[in-house]
Amino acid sequence: MPAIKSAISVGLLYVPVSLQKTTRDTSIHFNQLCKDTHQRIKYQKYCPSCNKEIKNEDIVKGYEFEKGQYVTISEDELERIKTKADKTIHIIHFAKMSEIDPILFEKNYYVVPEPGGEKAYELLRQALLSKKSVAIAKTVLGTKEELLCLYPEKDGILARILFYQEEIQAMPKTITNIKVEKSELDIAKTLIDSMSQKFDIAAYYDEYQKRLREAIESKIQGKEIVTADPSQPGNIIDLMEALKKTVEMRKGHKGTA
Rank of each mutant, 00 (worst) to 15 (best):
G68R: 05
P113W: 04
I73G: 00
R160D: 01
K132Y: 01
C149A: 09
V247Q: 04
Y110K: 09
K84P: 00
E153Y: 01
E181R: 09
G117N: 04
K42A: 10
Q232S: 13
T139L: 12
K254G: 01
Q126G: 15
P230K: 14
I4M: 04
N56I: 05
E248Q: 14
R160C: 02
E214R: 13
P16G: 08
R213E: 10
I59F: 03
K138G: 00
F163P: 01
T22S: 13
Q165C: 02
S130L: 11
K35W: 07
Q165R: 12
D86C: 11
V134L: 00
G142T: 09
I4P: 00
K52D: 09
I28K: 05
Q169G: 09
P115M: 06
M195K: 12
I59E: 01
N56Y: 06
Q169H: 10
F65E: 05
C149E: 00
I187Y: 04
G252T: 08
P152E: 01
T256Y: 10
G222F: 07
E53F: 01
K219T: 02
D200A: 08
I100W: 00
I201K: 15
I220P: 02
H93C: 09
E122H: 12
Q32I: 12
I8W: 02
L239K: 13
N31M: 10
Y14S: 15
A7Y: 02
I81P: 03
K107C: 01
H93W: 05
R211D: 10
V60R: 08
L239P: 04
V10D: 05
P115W: 05
C50P: 03
Y110H: 14
T26D: 13
D238H: 05
Q209T: 15
E153I: 06
V112P: 00
D229T: 11
I8A: 08
E248W: 02
K154D: 06
K179H: 14
K5C: 02
K52I: 03
P113V: 06
K84H: 09
N31Y: 14
E166P: 00
I178S: 06
H38W: 03
A159P: 02
G11L: 08
L243C: 05
